[in-house]
């Protein structure tokens, strides 16, 4: 079973709708035990970083998510969910993240229209199983004001240009992240979710 982590923020339903469309079973859950036994975990999310971490703490999900990441099973963070994987964010004051992928979450420059809202391209800087069968520089849907700056540039497997090139797809072993919303990115996004789901089968 794929666990879609529900920590009381935003639009989780659309990830579930997309998996339903792919014919893949999933559950929305806030239960640490469900995360611990999941075959794959999706950490979605929109909203504010500090509030998201506070909710994860309150639900007792921080340690289970970190343990899960260390288990080697497929894990993807989407949008805010990807940012939560990092060490720290500067969104409305400094907030500690899950610190699974070392790095900082910082704001786009003042000269840019923020949030970045709309379809932008993902340049495949390094091979990543999420990109399987997708063309380089394909478009995905973004809606965010902060972006990830991982300490190790090698984990930035996909890059997007907005003012500058920044990490829009992350991979650190079994832990993946998409700054964009694959569940809202049409056929390319559904293909990417399919690629994520297929990582489960490779495990067995």
């Amino acid at each position: 079973m794929i666990a879609i982590v529900d920590y009381g923020l935003g639009n989780l339903r659309s990830v579930k709708y997309a998996l339903d469309r792919l014919g893949v079973e999933s559950e929305l859950t806030s239960d640490p035990a469900a995360v611990a036994r999941a075959e794959a975990v999706i950490l979605p999310g929109v909203g504010a970083f500090g509030e998201a971490m506070a909710n994860l703490r309150e639900l007792g999900l921080v340690a289970p998510l970190r343990d899960y990441a260390a288990s080697g099973r497929p894990f993807v963070g989407i949008c805010l969910g990807m940012q939560l994987l990092l060490t720290r964010s500067e969104e409305h004051g400094l907030h500690d993240g899950l610190d699974i992928i070392p790095g900082q979450v910082v704001r786009f420059g003042q000269e840019l229209t923020v949030p970045q809202m709309g379809w932008n391209q993902v340049r495949q800087a390094r091979p990543c199983p999420l990109f399987e069968g997708l063309r380089d520089e394909d478009y995905f849907y973004f809606a965010h004001s902060y972006y990830c700056r991982p300490d190790d540039p090698a984990v930035a497997v996909g890059l997007t240009d907005y003012g500058q090139a920044y990490a829009s797809t992350l991979q650190q072993g079994n832990v993946l992240g998409c700054q964009y919303h694959p569940e809202k990115s049409g056929p390319s996004g559904l293909k990417m979710l399919r690629n994520f789901v297929s990582l489960i089968k490779e495990q067995v």
């Binding site: 935003g10 639009n11 989780l12 339903r13 659309s14 709708y17 997309a18 469309r21 849907y141 809606a143 919303h181 569940e183 809202k184 990115s185 049409g186 056929p187 996004g189 559904l190």
Partner: peptide, 25 residues
């Protein structure tokens, strides 16, 4: 499976919450 916005007749936070939780971006 693309983003969509819903508007019209929204008066309170509960309306916003319900629409976003239903799947609106």
């Amino acid at each position: 499976f693309i983003p969509y916005t819903i508007g019209g007749g929204i008066r309170e936070l509960d309306d916003i919450k319900a629409l976003l939780q239903a799947g609106a971006e």
